[in-house]
């Protein structure tokens, strides 16, 4: 079984802070990490390979430094990795990103399954997975929490929705996006880490993957960011004080007044 995993290097948004004076992001101390959801995608791919055999290929699109996340993928147990990197890829929105990744996937060639994380932690759009599937003309199942069964190109999955889980049956080739519940990712082995250090990461640019210039990067992106600003944080909070009974009464009164309860 040939499995492709798409991953992304993201700034560790949990460490991002807003400078209250300038209203801008403070990036000091913010490191780049592998998008946390992508680790579940990688783990699931490696588990499938261990169970039924096959090959795990990992792709990422990003600046040269994004090679780091591919090393992590190797350390976890991926077989092949490719970095899609070209100045012309910069400024891509989800449409241009999914086009670029789909061209990279076509260049890799044969695949049965593509696995992505449910969304990235910087963009939070959850759009690139379904958009890649459309570009490749294959079905997509999002928010997968469990692969129940996979045999002879037939696959049974569980996906999480608002009020429960859907049980899905479909066929390969397929793209799925996975949620945290699907597995518990392994810690890379020492041997994996050593291998990752030594490996040379192949880089593909726009011409390597045969991407049309009009469809990549900024020019291939229909959306444009026109303004970035800090969210309003101060809710003018009020601290309720007193004995527990007093506090409870105050709170209920306030919520009643606000017609919240």
């Amino acid at each position: 079984m040939n499995i492709i995993v798409c991953i992304k290097q993201v700034p560790d948004t949990t460490k991002v802070k807003i400078d209250p004076e300038t209203n801008t992001l403070v990036r000091e101390g913010v490191e780049s990490i592998i998008n946390p959801f992508d680790i579940y995608a990688l783990e699931e791919a490696i588990r499938l390979k261990e169970k039924i055999g096959g090959n795990v290929t990992v792709l990422t699109m990003g600046p040269p430094q994004a090679a780091e996340v591919l090393r992590e993928a190797i350390a976890m147990g991926a077989d092949d990795v490719y970095l899609l990197s070209d100045k012309a890829f910069a400024g891509a929105d989800t449409l241009a990103t999914s086009y670029t990744l789909s061209k990279g996937i076509e260049k890799v060639g044969q695949f049965d399954l593509i696995i992505c994380g449910k969304q990235t932690m910087d963009g939070d759009t959850a759009q690139v997975g379904p958009e890649i599937a459309q570009k490749l003309g294959i079905p997509v199942v999002t928010y997968v929490s469990k692969i129940e069964d996979i045999e002879n190109g037939q696959i049974k999955l569980k996906r999480m929705v608002e009020d429960g889980y859907e049980v899905i049956e479909t066929e390969t080739p397929l793209l799925m996006t996975v949620i945290k519940e699907i597995n518990e990712p392994r810690v890379p082995s020492l041997r994996g880490i050593m291998k990752a250090k030594k490996i040379e990461i192949p880089i593909w640019d726009a011409s390597d993957i045969g991407a049309e210039g009009e469809k990549i990067g900024l020019s291939g992106s229909p959306t444009q960011v026109v303004r970035i600003f800090a969210p309003e944080v101060s809710k003018e909070g009020e601290i309720l004080e007193g004995e527990p009974t007093e506090i409870a009464e105050k709170l209920i009164l306030k919520l009643k007044k606000g017609k919240v309860i």
Partner: peptide, 20 residues
């Protein structure tokens, strides 16, 4: 969960922008 899965497919087919 339905909209975030379905609409990207529509937008990608139409090759237009989609904001999540």
């Amino acid at each position: 969960s339905f909209g975030r899965s379905l609409i990207p497919r529509v937008a990608a087919t139409l090759e237009t922008g989609l904001t999540a």
